[in-house]
């Protein structure tokens, strides 16, 4: 084994051996003052040079990009499955089915079919389970598909219609369950991406949802959507309108617009009486 050389940083004395001496024989400095010579003479990189900075930035960006891409692609299938289950849970919540543990089984029990409306507003094609959609805004805007979930709760036929819109800070969405007269609300579920906690975010809560059951979707003439959310205390048509969240006016208006716009797409379906 080749002997190493150690140099005392205090006086410059050079010691040869496997380790640094306990005390420098010249100046009595401790072993910690010795540094190894020859071998990696601790190259001090100039961390302020332009080249170093550029290379550092480039390497960092590439490493982080690969890391994020890797994490994203390796977790994507799991995430998608979670999102699907969550969507199913939300649809079940609109049907007053809460606290489910096995989402897929419960969903299959209550939701009989995921149907698409045809041009005449009749229930048409059935969407296979594998093609279960999670963004109904995309479904309508990009593929022109209007979904209706045919459900059965306690032997009664219910229809669940997905709705989507915008609140104050971001997206709001929900599911509206109707009785088989296609007019009376059976239950609703709303959620949001980033509304203000304590104010607009209250739309995602049971007290607000509980205002909806029994309301009528269509106005008396049956020609437009009357179901909506009014400013707290401004309800004029209690058969179809509910109180908004006080302090969350913009979010409440967002829900109102969402219901009117999305349900309007279903007008043909809603007005066909069998």
């Amino acid at each position: 084994m080749a002997t190493k050389k150690f140099r005392c940083k205090v006086c410059g004395y050079v010691h040869e051996g496997d380790t640094a001496p306990a005390v420098c024989p010249v100046c009595k400095a401790l072993a910690s003052e010795f540094e190894e010579m020859g071998a990696p003479a601790k190259k001090k990189l100039d961390t302020n040079s332009n080249v170093y900075t550029l290379v550092y930035a480039a390497v960092m960006v590439i490493v982080v990009a690969f890391l994020l891409a890797f994490v994203n692609s390796s977790l994507r299938t799991r995430q998608n499955e979670n999102i699907k289950q969550d969507t199913k849970k939300q649809i079940l919540a609109a049907l007053h089915v809460n606290n489910v543990t096995d989402v897929n089984a419960e969903f299959a029990r209550y939701v009989k079919a995921d149907r698409l409306l045809d041009a005449d507003g009749q229930l048409g094609e059935t969407v296979p389970e594998a093609d279960f959609a999670t963004s109904y805004e995309k479904e309508v805007k990009e593929r022109g598909r209007l979904h209706v979930f045919e459900c059965e709760v306690n032997g009664e036929m219910k229809y669940v219609i997905p709705v989507y819109g915008t609140g104050l800070w971001g997206a709001v969405w929900g599911y509206v369950a109707l009785d088989d007269d296609k007019d009376t609300v059976f239950g609703v579920y709303f959620s949001h991406a980033s509304e203000t906690p304590g104010l607009g975010a209250e739309i995602a809560g049971q007290p607000f949802w509980d205002e909806f059951p029994g309301k009528r979707v269509l106005d008396n003439a049956g020609s437009s959507v009357a179901l909506g959310v009014m400013k707290n205390g401004k309800v004029e048509n209690p058969a179809s309108e509910v109180d908004g969240i006080s302090g969350g006016t913009i979010t409440s208006n967002g829900v109102d617009q969402m219901l009117k716009n999305c349900l309007a797409n279903y007008m043909k379906f809603l007005t066909i009486k069998e």
Partner: peptide, 29 residues
């Protein structure tokens, strides 16, 4: 010891953002 002084804030920001994103991706899964 390796972070270039002039872009240290950017480096810090990238580290934080990457960390938060990865944690949130893992939580999502």
């Amino acid at each position: 010891h390796t972070i270039p002084n002039r872009i240290r804030i950017i480096v810090q920001l990238v580290v934080v953002a990457a960390l938060v994103t990865i944690v949130s991706e893992i939580l999502k899964a």
